[in-house]
Design a protein around this nucleic acid. Sequence first.
DNA 1: ATTTAACCTTGACGTACATCAAGAATTGAT
DNA 2: ATCAATTCTTGATGTACGTCAAGGTTAAAT
Lengths: 232, 232
Amino acid sequence: MCCELCPQESSCLTTVPVFNGMKTEDIQALRKVTRSSKFQKGDYIFREGDHSETLFVVKEGLIKLTKTSAEGKEQIVRLLFPGDFFGLFSLLRDENHYMNAEPVQETVICLIEKRDFLQTMERNSDLSFRFLLAMNDRLYEADETVGNMSLLEVEQRLARALVLFHDKMNTKTGAFTLPITKKDLASFIGTTPESVSRKLLAFMSQRYIHMEGQRQIQILELDELKRISEMH
Amino acid sequence: MCCELCPQESSCLTTVPVFNGMKTEDIQALRKVTRSSKFQKGDYIFREGDHSETLFVVKEGLIKLTKTSAEGKEQIVRLLFPGDFFGLFSLLRDENHYMNAEPVQETVICLIEKRDFLQTMERNSDLSFRFLLAMNDRLYEADETVGNMSLLEVEQRLARALVLFHDKMNTKTGAFTLPITKKDLASFIGTTPESVSRKLLAFMSQRYIHMEGQRQIQILELDELKRISEMH
DNA sequence: ATTTAACCTTGACGTACATCAAGAATTGAT
DNA sequence: ATCAATTCTTGATGTACGTCAAGGTTAAAT
């Protein structure tokens, strides 16, 4: 489906940070070449090694980017929330994808083809600067993650993930539904489901969180979790 | 010292990948605003929290970028080899530095001030695209590192680091001098000096490497090390 | 509504690696 | 050249967390 027909206020191009503040005529031009597509849980948006000429922008939903190890184990390298984009690396380098992209729930993404994207960039020098800023932020996050992965222990990485979800799920009460399985949560923070299970239990008995069923998490002591996650 | 006077062939701006292939007149313009500066081991180029308005490009030497943990432990997040740059994040975001930069040997860097850099970018739309490409590569590396940190064990991370140094020190014979202390090497791969010591010993007894003194390393089985480092 | 297949939990156990400690080897400063 | 300060090594010990296994729970599929 082509995004030219999307209502302006809900278009990827107006809701996504990287395009924010672009001139209206440039947005209009980009909309003409933007398609949107819906994916279900269990689909693959693309896989490691797939050829790629497309920029992906997440409109709604949640995507996990994973790498598969030699033994077939899946490591979640990043989660893509609405507003995030992916595919720039392969698009710019003419390389194949180096990760798998798999929605963890129903997800709508906007797609811009390489040729269209590069053409727009040529006409609009501002755009490459915008993406430079966005990449800059991404790199900062990645540097943080590198520091955390080796410095922090499971307890701290889990606290960190809980705070992240709390923020992203923008809840008022401190209660939210975990958007991924605990298995995925384990992979995301680089541990096992067993360890996640035990640590969550520990957080509960310390009254930092309260859990209702498998996915409903109520954060009781946000500051405490932040303290834990930040004390590298 | 101003780089306008540098011999063209040894200038940062001609030897550094990100500026490669720029039009001569643009290079000339940038040279006018580029200074170079020499740092010794033990100096700090900048520290976490320092205000920053400068882009740094490594001309010669080796720099470690570190984060300090709450307990005062230092984690090496990245090593900057000749041709690498740093400081773009703070420059673009008006933020303070989020890492320490410390040369591990005598190091020459080229400096471009924010105002000059942004002015050049405005006049030369190509430049932001070049940096976008470079950031793209950096992000790829960071994603790789994230995957490796949690997936790989010390043995594999060490093998990986040895291969990295072997490549960067561009040696013909497979022999090279370790450019950092083993303590730093430990911090770089997220482990302790003790573990590095033991694993290197293991590699020696398996005849993958041979060590002469503390720093001279001769790689005997490069393919084997690569195999180990890649078998995530 | 049943069945099937994931996912989750809990316990028992093993192990890679961190920590602690103390001596040896380098490095560098005077 | 000498001494102090790091860095490096090696051994002994502890522990956080991974692995294995088995039962329980939830979710998906027919």
